[in-house]
Amino acid sequence: ELREAFAKVDTDGNGYISFNELNDLFKAACLPLPGYRVREITENLMATGDLDQDGRISFDEFIKIFHGLKSTDVAKTFRKAINK
């Protein structure tokens, strides 16, 4: 299930999730959020999830993000976006 969610976000299939891919995910989900809020959520996920600070999120980092977000608003938003 997590591998499928990761693949859905990794639209270019390079094995990593970029800032733009995350941002595009939230935009495509048509969530009722202003653009600046989408950017804040994306920046927050990148800042906390990109553990090796290479500017992208690997599958291992994605798993840690996903499990670390349990019930936060960001987690709910992220799950809604993935499930669209």
Rank of each mutant, 00 (worst) to 15 (best):
N20E: 14
I41V: 10
L69W: 05
R39Y: 04
Y16N: 02
L31A: 09
H67R: 09
H67W: 03
R3A: 05
G15N: 02
V74W: 11
G49W: 06
V38L: 13
N14W: 00
Y36K: 14
L69I: 10
T11M: 05
D24G: 04
G13H: 08
N44F: 06
Y36D: 15
A28K: 11
R37P: 03
H67E: 15
G68P: 05
F78D: 15
S18C: 09
S18K: 14
A47P: 04
S58M: 01
Q53G: 09
K80Y: 07
I65F: 05
E40G: 03
A7F: 09
R37A: 12
E40C: 02
S58N: 09
A47T: 10
G35Y: 10
C30W: 04
F59R: 02
D10P: 00
V9N: 00
F26A: 04
R39Q: 10
R79Y: 08
E21T: 03
G68N: 13
D60K: 11
D50N: 07
V38K: 05
G49H: 12
N44W: 07
I57Y: 05
D52K: 15
D73N: 10
G13F: 03
A29W: 06
A29I: 15
L33C: 08
D60L: 03
T48D: 11
F66G: 01
T11G: 04
R39D: 09
R79K: 15
S18W: 03
G35D: 14
T48C: 12
R3G: 03
Y16I: 01
A28R: 07
N20P: 05
Q53H: 14
Y16R: 06
G68W: 08
F26C: 09
N20I: 02
G15V: 00
F26M: 08
R39I: 06
T42K: 15
E4M: 15
H67C: 07
R37E: 07
S58E: 02
M46D: 05
V38P: 02
M46R: 14
L22Y: 00
G35S: 13
Q53L: 08
D50E: 15
G49F: 07
N20F: 03
K76C: 12
D50C: 07
K64A: 07
V74Y: 12
A7I: 15
P34F: 03
E4S: 07
C30K: 15
A47H: 10
L51H: 14
R37T: 12
N83I: 07
I63T: 13
H67V: 05
D60T: 08
F59C: 09
T42R: 09
V9A: 09
L22K: 00
L31V: 12
V9F: 10
R79E: 15
E43R: 08
K76N: 13
K80Q: 11
F6V: 01
L31D: 07
L31S: 08
A47N: 10
K8H: 04
F6S: 00
L33M: 12
F78P: 15
M46P: 04
G55M: 06
F19I: 11
A29R: 03
F78G: 15
L22N: 01
L2Y: 04
H67F: 03
S58P: 02
L22I: 07
S18D: 15
F62R: 00
Y36T: 14
N20R: 09
L33R: 03
F26W: 03
A29T: 10
D60H: 09
F59I: 07
N23A: 14
N14K: 15
I41E: 03
T48Q: 13
A29S: 09
N14G: 02
F78V: 11
C30D: 15
E21Q: 14
K8L: 12
I41Y: 06
M46G: 08
A28F: 07
T11A: 09
D24R: 06
F59V: 06
V38R: 04
G49C: 05
E43H: 10
I82V: 04
F66D: 01
L31C: 11
Y36S: 15
R37F: 06
H67M: 07
F6G: 00
N23E: 15
N23D: 14
A75S: 12
L69K: 05
E43G: 05
G49L: 06
D24N: 08
Q53S: 10
E61G: 08
R56S: 06
D52Q: 14
K70V: 10
D73T: 13
A75L: 07
I17D: 00
N20M: 07
I63E: 15
V74S: 13
C30E: 15
L33P: 05
G49V: 05
D73R: 07
A81P: 15
L22M: 08
K80P: 15
A81E: 14
L2W: 01
N14T: 13
A29M: 14
Y36H: 15
L45S: 03
G55K: 08
I41T: 02
G13V: 00
K64G: 05
E43D: 14
A28W: 05
T72A: 12
T11C: 06
L51N: 05
T77L: 07
E40P: 02
A7E: 09
L45R: 03
V9S: 02
R39F: 03
